[in-house]
Design a protein around this nucleic acid. Structure first.
Lengths: 110, 110
DNA sequence: AATATTAATCGTAATATTGCAATGTAATAA
DNA sequence: TTATTACATTGCAATATTACGATTAATATT
């Protein structure tokens, strides 16, 4: 049906999936890397650096902002974006718990 | 157009996005958590534990297997799945590099 | 005020994903 | 052999995502 049945899963599982989905597109990965790397976090710069159309970048920014991973700040006609440090750290905790599950005790059944 | 323009991005960015996409659905998160938690990694167990239909679980398993994150092993009429430890570790390296980018040097522009 | 600049939003087309019923397949059991 | 069990595959409907042209809204510049 194309509809994810979120009610079958735990809040934690849904949260992991939501964050992961945000990173599930190279444009958003690229945007975030740019925000980490540069000090110029203006939308227009991202458009020219990444090479997708402005509405497309704007849409990706909206998603990241909605998840709380980035913040936007109006500066004249420009909008300056940056990583939301607190939320990024919180997200890292959630994802790390998932990624760092213990494997040493398990014996390979395959 | 619904078509991700992978050619605009680096291999690393595309790889991060591919792994993240795999984790971008709670069913796959749940499957992986089960494989970490239990010793019975038989497909049928996942179906009854998760509550989605068998073809749906089978499809998710296929994706995870295709990415190399899990391995499957035929045992009679059953198929036993487990985490591919080596590939999981490699994936963790890639994702960690992305998640652990340095924020301390950056000053908030927002 | 008129115009330019920047970014958000709307509308739409193309493609991808999710989920499952039905069916296929391979191994074992009777 | 025939039935059963366990899983994979196929086909399809519903929904989601991606991308961008056109437009809009807000601020700057002239």
């Amino acid at each position: 049906m194309g509809l994810t049945k979120t009610e079958m899963f735990t809040d934690q599982q849904n949260e992991i999936a939501l964050f992961a989905k945000a990173f599930g597109h190279p444009a958003r990965v690229s945007i975030l890397q740019q925000l980490f790397k540069t000090d110029s976090c203006v939308c227009g710069d991202l458009v020219s650096e990444i090479g997708l159309a402005q509405p497309t970048i704007s849409q990706h920014l909206k998603e990241l902002k909605h998840l709380g991973l980035i913040k936007g700040n109006i500066a004249g006609t420009s909008v300056c974006y940056c990583i939301d440090k607190e939320n990024w750290a919180a997200m890292k905790n959630v994802m790390s718990q998932f990624l760092n599950q213990d494997l040493t005790q398990k014996q390979d059944c395959c």
